[in-house]
Amino acid sequence: MSAPLAPKALKRLFDKIGTVDAVGIEERVLKYGTRSIKTDSKLWGLRCAVSMVDLTTLEGKDTPGKVASLCQKAIEPHEFSDTPKVAAVCVYPSMVKHARKYLGVSPVKIASVATAFPSGQAPLKTRLAEVRYAVAQGADEVDMVINRGAFLSGEYALVQDEIAAVVQACGKSALKVILEVSELETYDSIRAASCLAMQVIREGDFIKTSTGKTGLNATLGNNQVMLEAIRDHYLATGVAIGMKPAGGIRSAKQSLQFLTAVKETLGDRWLTNKRYRFGASSLLNDLVRQIEKQRTGAYQAPYAFSEAAESY
């Protein structure tokens, strides 16, 4: 029943929001790699990127101890330079109370994934209960996943209603809506899902590329599609939505290209961690490594930084 529904519903949706010129997007994002960002502006960009990191651990083997060291890293990414704190730590709901304990009064926020992350394949009631649990435990931000099954079968109203229900369950906590772009497959679908989500979320909420649990994560291409959707939404309604690419951004160089995309698409007002985040774990160490390189003039070894995975 749902199969024939999809094309019609999709057409109605695209009549309203417009489609994406995929080739144009690819060409556009290629240019971001060509900007020459050196010395002072590079340092500014690196520090800005550090302040936007949602330092993430989302593994079955997470323990309170692991969360404790993650929180310490979030508060003080590197001991020898005045590196800014990261924006937030991102953990599973059961780890929120531990993060709360270790972060104390620091301004670093706690983001919790919820709604049966990463698949979202649980009854709505269960998903909402999980959101309320995370918020009650002290999560400042909630990262939800959309119902991709419903989206792909054309039940856009259902997708939107579920997001609206999660917005309510969040209360004062900010919401990040994960589209899981790799499962949406086309730029058109990414734009459609972005617009559906933005119609029901609030100023200060985010849309987010992916869970980091699938093969393809944040790329400059899907980042660009979502940034342009945010721009169109802002111009139409005046509501400023934030953006969070997640997964796959590992090097400082990549993060500067993403920041270039933000500046050239949405402008300086989005170059703040209130409106732009990086969902990442290994990115942070590469950022502080490059900041140290700028400070000392010497290339640094990755294992000289805390929480490094590299040892050779």
């Binding site: 290339y299 640094q300 070894a301």
Partner: peptide, 8 residues
């Protein structure tokens, strides 16, 4: 000079 200072 870079061989000399590269910490890695």
């Amino acid at each position: 000079p870079t061989f000399a200072t590269h910490a890695h």
